[in-house]
């Protein structure tokens, strides 16, 4: 179950989704968890692809208040949101 996923795996899973769907202009390996993904080239449409892929990957649904750019700004902010949803 979701609760069993350890933190490190979640971060790895988020990074994989961003790498596949974020359309970044830099290498994901060069980005820290706190680096701004939009500055790294993620477009609005990249953001949406990442959002949908995260929902599928973690089997969650981002509620309306989370559908904001800052939710998807960094690996760390995405991780916070995903953890919050997994705990529910």
């Amino acid at each position: 179950m979701a609760q069993d996923i350890v933190g490190a795996d979640i971060t790895e899973q988020i990074r994989e989704v961003i790498e596949r769907f974020g359309n970044l202009v830099v290498d994901m390996a060069d980005l820290d968890d706190a680096d701004d993904l939009f500055r790294a080239g993620m477009s609005s449409f990249g953001n949406i692809s990442v959002m949908l892929a995260l929902e599928e990957s973690f089997n969650v649904e981002f509620p309306e208040p989370m559908l904001r750019r800052d939710t998807f700004e960094t690996v760390a902010s995405i991780r916070r949101a995903v953890l919050q949803l997994l705990e529910q």
Binding site: I48, M51, R69
Partner: peptide, 13 residues
């Protein structure tokens, strides 16, 4: 839609 909520937020930001 839901994708649109993110786009709208980005446009305002």
């Amino acid at each position: 839609g839901r994708a649109g909520a993110i786009l709208a937020d980005g446009q305002r930001q």
